[in-house]
């Protein structure tokens, strides 16, 4: 098993957000995490990536059989955990290409590979940038500075295709995308699907799952996974909303703490 989450409880500022998550993701799989606002979806994504401010009060997370929660964020990244951010930050004065090269070489160094020189690196990036249909000029702009919402998300996908992670977590990558951008982002993700790689796709809407077809769909509500199923579950949610799932789980519509 690539990722195993066992009875994970997480609090933010003393307030419990995740209340016992169990989830197993195998290499090659795509899991969608759905759920109403405030159900804890983004918390789960951030805890896995190692963001500060989240207190794990119970449970464990194994990644490639290792205790993921003990690893520093940069070590997780170098071991192949990638988070496509819901709100990518701007870093003025640092070009995309400069960040990408530093990131690729940090990962390569960690794996005992020689660092790529500027020429080899550019060749690699220019191949990848076509996948997300961005202009090469994009590489020389400052990271996310002045980017539109869609450009920021495409940039996340570009970074992902260059870094080729083992576990990619997409945190509402579809939010704020028009249909063309959604298609481009999805193509980028699909091009990376492989037997060695798993995806955790956090989304509010089923729309994204028309393009990135999941193996499993989980509904997160009130800090727990209240229902799991195959992709038909997503279609049903699209049709009927979350209310019925929450009621069956005894939560009632709109229940659960805010994340």
């Amino acid at each position: 098993m690539l990722l195993e989450i066992r009875n994970l409880h997480v609090s933010v500022e003393g307030k419990p957000i995740l209340r016992g998550i169990d989830l197993a993701v195998d290499a090659g799989e795509v899991h969608a995490i759905m759920g109403p606002n405030g159900s804890g979806k983004s918390t789960l994504a951030n805890v896995l990536a190692g963001r500060e401010g989240y207190e794990v009060t119970e449970g464990e997370v194994l990644y490639k059989g290792r205790n993921l929660l003990e690893m520093a964020p940069e070590e997780r990244a170098r071991e192949g955990v990638f988070l496509a951010f819901q709100y990518p930050v701007e870093i003025p004065g640092v070009s995309n290409v400069y960040l990408l090269k530093a990131a690729v070489n940090a990962v390569r160094k960690h794996r005992g590979l020689p660092e790529l020189d500027a020429m080899d690196f550019l060749k690699l990036v220019k191949e990848k940038i076509r996948l997300v249909r961005m202009d090469e000029q994009f590489l020389y702009r400052s990271v996310n500075e002045g980017f539109s919402g869609g450009e920021k998300k495409r940039n996340e996908v570009l970074q992902m295709t260059v870094l080729e992670p083992t576990l990619a977590i997409l945190d509402e990558t579809d939010s704020g995308l028009d249909i063309d951008a959604l298609r481009i982002v999805s193509e980028g993700v699909n091009s990376l699907r492989s037997p060695e790689r798993a995806f955790l796709v956090v989304t509010h809407y089923q729309r994204l799952l028309d393009y990135i077809v999941p193996d499993k769909v989980h509904v997160l509500a009130g800090g727990r996974i209240v229902r799991s199923g195959d992709r038909t579950l997503a279609l049903e949610l699209e049709k009927r909303g979350y209310g019925w799932v929450l009621e069956e789980a005894g939560l009632g519509a709109g229940a659960g703490p805010a994340a």
């Binding site: 963001r51 940069e74 990244a77 951010f85 960040l99 940090a106 990962v107």
Partner: peptide, 29 residues
């Protein structure tokens, strides 16, 4: 910001490289 640091560390940079990168970006002009 913590967000900037975390963003860069999530891409594999050490904390010190992340700070350096942000500061150098600030000074680029």
């Amino acid at each position: 910001s913590e967000d900037q640091l975390f963003y860069l560390m999530q891409r594999g940079l050490s904390a010190e490289d992340a700070v350096s990168m942000i500061v150098n970006g600030f000074c680029k002009e």
